[in-house]
Design a protein around this nucleic acid. Sequence first.
DNA 1: TGCGTCCTGTCAGCAAAATGTCAGGGCATT
DNA 2: AATGCCCTGACATTTTGCTGACAGGACGCA
Lengths: 221, 221
Amino acid sequence: MRILLVEDEPKIAYSIVSALTGANYRVDAVRDGETAWFRGDTEDYDLVILDLGLPKMDGLAVLKRWRAAGKMMPVLILTARGTWPERVEGIDAGADDYLAKPFQIEEVLARVRALIRRSVGQGSAILTAGPIALDTRQMRVLFDGAPVSVSPLEYRLIGYLLHHKGRVVSSSELIEHLYGDDDARDANALEAVVTRLRRKLGPDFIETRRGFGYLVSDEPA
Amino acid sequence: MRILLVEDEPKIAYSIVSALTGANYRVDAVRDGETAWFRGDTEDYDLVILDLGLPKMDGLAVLKRWRAAGKMMPVLILTARGTWPERVEGIDAGADDYLAKPFQIEEVLARVRALIRRSVGQGSAILTAGPIALDTRQMRVLFDGAPVSVSPLEYRLIGYLLHHKGRVVSSSELIEHLYGDDDARDANALEAVVTRLRRKLGPDFIETRRGFGYLVSDEPA
DNA sequence: TGCGTCCTGTCAGCAAAATGTCAGGGCATT
DNA sequence: AATGCCCTGACATTTTGCTGACAGGACGCA
């Protein structure tokens, strides 16, 4: 799960990053609204934690621009206590949850968990690469527009690869993502899944980089 | 825009009336359920803000009687935080939105705006998908125009799926919304409800995405 | 109060799908 | 050609969801 943290105050940013990283999320942190807007617009995040009152571009403006551009990822807003007018504006702008400063780190984690749980299967972003599209609303894979039935594990695998398309993903990273650190599986289990997916999506879509991992190419075939 | 406020606590009533009046709404305020029922039945309001826990007649009872009499105005319910059973009952009774006490005045205004916007725009009280229609005012389910008798739980389930049609809804999310976090039920209970609904609505209407959840398709069959 | 009915959770068994495991075989890299 | 890494078909196991049956409880009605 990738999270974008937008927070200009270093101390707060650091504590949130630590907590989220410790909870096994991948976190990108930025400090100003302009950068935030760009990252949120070009990358796919599962969640954004957005501080209001930022340099360069106000947090609410960033949020509104994302929503206007069709970005639907859940957004958790951090706001100073007592600034309720902002909260109301936030509702209108399309925020999903709020947290007033100062807050406990545990609260942040709880909200993050809740938002991500809620948004699973709801993100309207449809990831594509070549003829394959991942319909995250209906939890299915489209091949040339036609639905292909995939199992949950297959879905997670192709989802992860699409999420990181254009980059080689190592087997260990995939295994870590598909299963937990807790119950690690044999590498062969992963290979079996890949095989089954290739049978459904065609052999060329998931490339093998022998010795390194797997790759879904970014470029239009 | 005329709003009926039903609230027995003077302080709260006063602050809401002030805020609404300041926002250019015409507000009538009453303090007990009986009066509320009479006013709502004889006058035309664009919105009702309804506190539960009223003298003389309970808020939910008022709402039910309005709906039974064919009153269609949107209702915003004020409820004490954490009283899930009330909330569930409210859904059954035909409420449109909720606000947990204590709340900020600005929140009330935001919800009021949202509800009025919704009802003015295309406030269709009837959700449809394929041959199934959900009449949220009369709390009935229609299949090809013919009423189908469904239980309260079945109604909530099909209602939730229709509200989120086109998207896969996970079992845990469904359970959370059908029962509330307090008394979680076995996943099998949910399956039983689904089975019973399918027997009434036909097997194809509620699709199963094995490993993910349930789905009511968006597309015209 | 007593009876019947409806609603709904629980249980158990079943079927099907999903997934891990194994054993060989192929193929790339050297 | 040798060496590993990877692929894959077959099989076993586990998981998941469906369904009929049953029971407790709520509710209405006499």
